[in-house]
Write a protein that binds this DNA or RNA. Structure first.
Length: 419
RNA sequence: GCGAUCGUAGCUCAGUUGGUUAGAGCGCCGGUUUGUGGUACCGGAGGUCGGGGGUUCGAGCCCCCUCGGUCGCCCCA
């Protein structure tokens, strides 16, 4: 029993900042995305997995890197009653990696996994960015061959096509192996340090904390220095170059269009070789629909992650995509049509109407009932739901159907369960 | 963390240089009409104009603070 200590009525609590209540066309689009993903991942034989939405904080802290802003400011962390620090998952990959190690899933390697669900990041909300958001996710763990990268990207490409999303292109880069990456990074630091005074304030800061990020600076002052910055290609080992060439030739063979993006980077050290994002083409409808947070699907190869979680060296590659962003691009989905509506013209026929309704539904016919409000207005309200057929019930019971088109399924449903 | 912008009915929005009891459409409820595939009309309920303070004879409107939404920056695993 709720008690109020004063005469003031209780105030309705508001929703948490950055959370969403998804309903109507948006909810239909959301479901279309997850249903299409489930269908496509089965075509590629990815196995479904479910992970907890929270983990020990160290799972994410160690995978993401203890020092970054991400860990200190962007995660939903809290202490449980036992004093352990826990964190709502901000990504799928770390939790999947932990599950792989703690459950002995090495026995299934190479393991193709798919999942989807909510993720949490403590950020200021903006278009396409929420504190609780949702992703679909696909990973291949325990496979070091470039064919895995190709397979994963082919699946992503097919998914986007089956969602009917156009105007989005795969942007592809390689970060090389660990040695290539380190050498490139050193050269970039040297290059930008030489012109430090002319960089934007943000990029001067990045020079110390995360120099690779200068490459995707939005500040026009940085643009010329980014343009003539050293390229990864000059630092690739023979093995890294061969790997990348196998990825690109595999994509060509699979018919996946791609574009080389030399400035596409990953901030975290465990990423190796392939890095990619599907991004709207400039001026496309997709770009207009998404605003500034426009990457639709992104991922890469993270061969160094398992070690940071205390596991054996385990190559892996994966991607994730924001369901909300995909849903913004799929357009309105017409809801499934209502096949039959039972119109109760007189409440004396209510029992007959309920029996009819359950026969319809048991027979696989989508059906609803209109039996409330002014009896004189029920007809109009029934019509407004745009049913394919209206079945009338009054004190005599069911007495007739109107509507155009095929009603065989409805008749069958009524007959089949009749005595 | 920083910046811009917006908060009026359940929803979408009007609201004049500050001026009486704050309006419309949709939705909801009721009635009349119609009488069976989206009829027309009449009526009703519903708002402390996000909240607090200030200026003023008088504030939805002007000023300050605050809360919330939206968009962007930073960050982007």
């Amino acid at each position: 029993m709720a008690k109020t200590s004063s005469n003031t009525p209780p105030k309705t609590p508001g929703a948490i900042r950055g959370t969403q209540d998804i309903f109507g066309p948006d909810a239909e689009a959301f479901a279309f995305v997850t249903e299409t993903f489930e269908r496509v991942r089965k075509l590629y034989r990815f196995r479904r997995a479910e992970m907890p939405v929270f983990e020990k904080t160290e799972v994410f802290a160690r995978s993401i890197g203890e020092t970054t802003d991400i860990v200190s400011k962007e995660m939903y962390s809290f202490e449980d009653r036992g004093g352990d620090s826990l964190t709502l998952r901000p990504e799928f990959t770390a939790g999947i990696a932990r599950a792989y190690l703690t459950n002995g899933w090495q026995q299934h390697a190479p393991l193709k996994l798919a999942t989807h669900g909510p993720l949490f990041r403590y950020e200021r909300p903006q278009k396409g960015r929420y504190r609780q958001f949702h992703q679909i996710d696909a990973e291949i763990i325990g496979a070091s061959e470039p064919q895995s990268d190709v397979e994963l990207l082919a699946m992503a490409d097919q998914l986007l096509r089956e969602l009917g999303i156009t105007g989005v292109t795969l942007q592809l880069n390689t970060l090389g192996d660990a040695d290539s990456r380190d050498a490139w990074r050193a050269a970039l630091v040297e290059h930008f340090r030489g012109v430090k005074g002319e960089l934007s304030e943000d990029s001067q800061e990045r020079l110390e904390k995360n120099p690779l990020r200068i490459l995707d600076s939005k500040d026009p002052r940085d643009r010329q220095f980014v343009a003539d910055a050293p390229k990864i290609d000059a630092f690739l080992s023979d093995e890294a170059l061969a790997f990348f060439e196998q990825v690109t030739s595999g994509l060509d063979a699979a018919g996946v269009a791609w574009n080389r993006a030399e400035s596409l980077v990953r901030g975290l050290d465990y990423y190796r070789h392939t890095a990619f994002e599907f991004v709207p083409d400039e001026g496309s409808a997709a770009a207009a629909a998404l605003g500034s947070q426009s990457t639709v699907l992104g991922g890469g190869r993270y061969d160094g992650l398992m070690e940071s979680l205390g596991g054996p060296v385990t190559p892996a590659v994966g991607w994730a995509a924001g369901i909300e962003r995909l849903a913004m691009l799929v357009g309105d989905k017409a809801p499934d049509p209502l096949e039959a509506i039972v119109l109760v013209e007189n409440d004396a026929g209510m029992a007959a109407a309920m029996q009819l309704l359950s026969r319809l539904r048991n027979g696989g016919v989508s059906a609803d009932i209109m039996a409330t409000g002014s009896p004189k207005k029920r007809y109009d309200k029934a019509v407004k739901q745009n049913p394919q057929h209206i079945l009338r019930v009054d004190e005599r019971g069911y007495h007739g159907m109107s509507g155009e088109g095929d009603n065989a399924r409805i008749l069958a449903a009524i007959e089949k369960s009749s005595p």
